[in-house]
């Protein structure tokens, strides 16, 4: 019997069969729970809504032509997701710089672990915490002590942006940290030896060389923000909603599945377009792949 992980029996007939058996369960999952469902979504997106909700077979482009009916969700997502990504990068960069260049190596690992730990906590709970902080008993209550009354923070774009920055900051810090850490510190010394001021060294040496990390982090954060549901649902309170919220509404409340399917296809298309753009223009010819999670 040939079995797993032998590299030498590759190519033998029995080895092939074993490999196929090893890959069979994953193939079944990918086929039944990824490819087939995505295909069903595509088919549905050309259908019509059944009178009682659900799907009626048809072939029309009406759902796609009607996307503007949820234009506000697209507009919110396509303005707030890039803005949130930008804010995330601006907040993350100085910390990543501190960790990579300034922090003493003895505590660097600890500081890095401390960045990632909150990210592991359930997103639902972390955003719930901001509902407490920004809610009427939180910051507004503190501000009323100094005379600023009736400040409304939840259910605003501001709250959603805070949630977005908070939710994805670690994901931005890490790639920037990695790119700054790789940076040859002798370049910085050379620059200052040649008489460049610290700011000039930063702008002409450090920043350009760490842009790749900024780009990787931005892509990750942007993609996740595009599909966001919890942050606008809790902190936007129905006033600031994203495509994800529109989808939940379309599938679980108004049960207009074909239209919802078209909206999700549009969402995937926008995400793919941003990934392809990123690969083309940012990674360029280096042929590197963003390694998303590992």
């Amino acid at each position: 019997m040939t079995a797993a992980a032998g590299t030498r029996d590759e190519g033998r007939g029995g080895g092939r069969a074993t490999t196929a058996l090893l890959l069979a369960p994953a193939s079944a999952f990918f086929l039944l729970l990824l490819l087939l469902p995505l295909a069903v979504v595509i088919v549905y997106s050309f259908g019509e809504r059944a009178p009682a909700g659900g799907y009626l077979p048809a072939f029309s482009f009406d759902n796609y032509l009607n996307l503007a009916a949820r234009g506000q969700a697209f507009l919110n997502t396509l303005t707030l997701a890039p803005l949130g990504t930008l804010l995330c990068a601006l907040v993350a960069y100085p910390l990543a710089y501190f960790l990579a260049v300034r922090a003493s190596p003895r505590i660097r690992t600890l500081l890095l672990v401390l960045v990632i730990v909150p990210f592991w906590a359930s997103q639902l709970l972390r955003i719930y915490a901001w509902l407490l902080i920004l809610g009427s008993k939180g910051i507004p209550a503190l501000l009323s002590l100094v005379g600023i009354e009736d400040l409304l923070l939840v259910n605003t774009r501001f709250a959603v942006l805070v949630g977005m920055v908070y939710g994805y900051l670690p994901l931005m810090i890490f790639p920037i940290y990695v790119s700054l850490e790789k940076l040859d510190k002798r370049l910085l010394e050379a620059s200052s030896d040649l008489g460049a001021r610290p700011w000039r060294t930063f702008l002409q040496v450090t920043l350009p060389m760490s842009l790749e990390g900024v780009a990787t982090g931005s892509l990750l954060v942007f993609i996740l923000l595009m599909g966001e549901f919890i942050i606008p649902a809790l902190l936007g309170g129905g006033k600031v909603f994203f495509i994800g919220n529109a989808l939940v509404d379309l599938f679980l409340q108004s049960r207009n599945w074909p239209y919802g399917a078209a909206v999700s296809i549009a969402l995937i298309a926008i995400m793919l377009a941003s990934i392809v753009t990123y690969m083309r223009f940012v990674l360029g010819k280096r042929g590197q792949r963003p390694n998303a999670f590992m």
Binding site: F30, L34, P37, V40, I223, A292, F293
Partner: peptide, 26 residues
């Protein structure tokens, strides 16, 4: 397989939820 693994990780949860919902219901 590499491609499928990346797709499975990158497709947003909300889309996975929808796609599996309508596939199961169908």
């Amino acid at each position: 397989f590499d491609g499928l693994i990346y797709v499975a990780i990158m497709v947003p949860g909300v889309v996975i939820g929808i796609a599996t919902l309508i596939a199961f219901v169908t």
